[in-house]
């Protein structure tokens, strides 16, 4: 059980302050979802949590050790990161792509250890692509490719998994499949942080929601506490209905409010 923590984290992008003194400690075993309007700093925050961005102030620490002081390989074993809109440059076989998740363990994809092979197989099973091992990853549909890349991140078996918009551009079924995989992964004790745009889906699957607004943490907590009509109006500039339902909240954006 390892604890990832952003401590008063600030990040500058070019001349702009993209993140301003963010404190975040996503809980192990829970799915934490980051939401916010375009340009709120969601991706910047996730990259910083993955140790891929130099903080301008504060830091990100894993069990109290700042990521900047960790060796790249140690960090890679502990934190798996799945960027947005993933692609595969060569027609590599699906199993080969997933096996790349074993690189942090010093395993070459064509010479996996027994543990590595099992990790790859179980990651493919988790996303429901057992029969796809030999298919070229470039010849898959968008939903299949997204699941392959997610399996790659799972195959690292890192205690922390960070995913950037895993369900963007997926059909409803694949959205549910991917989110269920993330939730199940969190339930195994992993810390899972995902960026999402669909507030209803976020409310339904998230254990905790972080609402980002202009680089600042606007609210953090369970979906019902964070997603209120007043907050959505203030942050997203939309008039929204938040309806409580059996399966979770239903968030319906009705009309745009005058922009800031």
């Amino acid at each position: 059980m390892r604890r990832l923590e952003a401590r008063s984290l600030s990040v500058d992008l070019a001349t702009r302050r993209a993140l301003d003194r963010i404190d975040l400690s996503p809980a192990p075993g829970r799915l934490t979802v980051i939401v916010g309007p375009n340009g709120a700093g969601k991706t910047t925050l996730l990259r910083a949590l993955a140790g891929l961005t130099e903080p301008a102030g504060g830091d990100v620490a894993l069990d109290g050790v700042p990521l900047a002081r960790m060796r790249a390989s140690d960090r890679a074993r502990a934190i798996a990161y799945l960027p947005q809109g993933g692609f595969v440059a060569w027609p590599l076989p699906v199993a080969g792509v997933v096996a790349l998740g074993r690189l942090p363990h010093g395993e070459k994809p064509d010479r996996l250890s027994q543990a590595g092979r099992e990790a790859v197989a179980s990651a493919l099973r988790a996303v429901g692509l057992q029969g796809f091992a030999d298919r070229p990853a470039t010849a898959l549909s968008g939903g299949e490719r997204a699941r392959v890349l997610l399996a790659r991140a799972l195959a690292t078996q890192a205690p922390v998994l960070l995913v950037d918009e895993p369900v963007a551009a997926l059909d409803p079924r694949h959205q549910l499949v991917v989110l269920e995989v993330l939730k199940a992964h969190a339930r195994t004790g992993a810390t899972v942080v995902a960026i999402m745009h669909d507030l209803t889906l976020a409310a339904r699957f998230a254990d905790d929601i972080l609402l980002l607004h202009q680089g600042k943490a606007e609210a953090f907590g369970p979906p019902e506490a964070v997603l209120t009509g007043a907050r959505l109006a203030a942050v997203f500039a939309v008039r929204a209905q938040v309806l409580a339902q059996a399966g979770g909240l239903l968030v319906v954006a009705e009309s745009p409010l005058p922009g800031p």
């Binding site: 140790g51 891929l52 890679a76 960027p83 993933g86 595969v88 440059a89 690189l103 790659r152 690292t156």
Partner: peptide, 13 residues
């Protein structure tokens, strides 16, 4: 690792 892009490669160490 670069086959999956620079960001992924960096995250893989």
């Amino acid at each position: 690792a670069l086959a999956l892009g620079e960001e992924t490669a960096r995250s893989l160490g």
